[in-house]
Computed example of a mutant assay.
Amino acid sequence: MEVFMAIGRSFANIKGGVSLSEKMIATNWKGMLVLRDYPLEYNQARTRRQSIVVSNLSTFSGLYNRVLTVKGRAEWEALAKMLGSAYHQEKRMVMGRRNTIIQCNPGGVLMSGHDLFIRCNMLAAMSGFTHPRLRAPLITGLPPSPGILVSQVMLQNGEMGLLCRLRPPVLSNDPPDKVYRLWMRVQLRGIIMVHHLEAMVKIGGGMPNLEGVMPIEKDGPKPISHQMEQLIAMEEADKQMHTDGILLTGFEVSNKKMWGVERVPFSALDVATVLLQAEVVVADTSEHGAVRSAPSNLEEIVLPEQLDNPEAKRLSEIARICNRAKNKKRQAKNTAMKRFFLKAADMTKEEIVKKVIGS
């Protein structure tokens, strides 16, 4: 490092293998320094969704290189350059993704036409649109984000459900392909049971059949002041703007082996937290690539207690066991770090650097 600094080069000009905290690979991508870890292991696709993603990646990459004309590739390259620079990319990476549970949030802006082609076609494929889309999206800006309101309801069979009301965005045109994508994350005793794309709802599809569905009233005193009555009236008026919706009664867990079931109803959860968020995906025509909106507001629902439900007790006990295992692993890691620092007190500076870097 001393020799490197002596010749006056920028850190951003590093390329190849470098040793920082561990061995890494450094590259320069469109003006931004990128550090990548060496892969420790290679995992093959296991789930059906992962297999579909891998297959689509291979298909779309081949289409860009073998089917698109020079003019077609130029359209995608031009659009990619308009998304942002290395400065905007680094700014988004520093800011992070806050107040969102949507995976693959459109935070990346620094990419090539090839990358953008794959992104738009993958978005179309995972949103139920026809694909491939060989033409770049029209430069009309991203669609407006939707709104979401979630309330707890009781079904005719006595089970509990979540009614998600969706507010359609105001679009400048009437694209043939337009859907909501609803994301869900469920946490029980701090353990994430599921975090995925839960459902896709057609924009303009209306509300589901709510015959026999009763809302669950929230506990607490009823509002009596004039200001509170106005607030309730505003909330009711806001509900009238949410003209689309979907009724959820449960979800499929991510780890079926750990929880012992494939699907969990909301009625079998004891004081679990459910996070729901929506986005809009549209495509201008059947030939243009798909684009997504910014995330909607994040709705958080805390499910009530289930004291006399044996299934709820079983799931809560599994969550407690997982928490105890996590705490035990954390304590073991902290103990190992304390032992290392106590041992490092008797080591020289050169020995400590060699031990940490491993070179």
Rank of each mutant, 00 (worst) to 15 (best):
N105C: 13
G107M: 14
G108Y: 07
V109K: 03
M111D: 12
G113M: 11
G113Q: 14
D115V: 04
C120N: 14
C120S: 12
M122K: 12
A124H: 09
M126Q: 06
F129R: 07
T130C: 07
P132T: 09
R133M: 08
R133Q: 06
R135F: 04
A136W: 12
A136I: 07
A136L: 07
A136P: 04
P137S: 07
P137F: 03
I139H: 03
P143C: 09
P144I: 01
P144T: 07
S145C: 06
S145E: 03
S145L: 03
P146F: 05
V150Y: 00
V150T: 02
V150Q: 01
S151T: 13
S151N: 10
Q152G: 05
Q152I: 03
V153R: 02
M154C: 08
N157F: 06
N157I: 04
G158A: 06
M160N: 01
M160S: 02
M160F: 02
M160D: 03
L162V: 02
R165T: 01
R165Q: 06
L166H: 00
R167L: 12
R167M: 13
P168K: 05
P169W: 14
V170P: 02
L171A: 04
N173M: 06
D174S: 14
P175L: 03
D177E: 15
Y180G: 00
R181H: 08
L182E: 08
L182F: 04
R185C: 05
Q187P: 01
Q187H: 03
G190Q: 02
I191N: 00
I191S: 00
I191Y: 00
M193H: 03
H195Q: 11
L197T: 04
E198P: 04
M200V: 15
K202V: 15
K202C: 11
G206V: 10
M207Q: 14
P208I: 01
N209G: 02
N209V: 10
L210F: 09
L210D: 13
L210G: 11
E211A: 14
E211D: 11
E211N: 12
G212M: 10
V213A: 06
P215A: 08
P215Q: 06
I216N: 05
D219M: 10
G220V: 10
G220K: 07
G220L: 08
P221C: 06
K222T: 13
P223Y: 14
P223E: 14
Q227S: 15
M228W: 11
E229F: 14
E229M: 14
Q230C: 10
L231F: 13
L231Q: 14
I232S: 12
I232Q: 13
I232T: 08
A233L: 09
M234T: 11
E235K: 09
E236G: 03
A237D: 09
D238W: 04
K239G: 10
Q240H: 08
M241C: 05
M241W: 05
D244L: 03
G245M: 01
I246Y: 01
L247I: 04
L247D: 05
L248M: 09
T249E: 12
T249S: 15
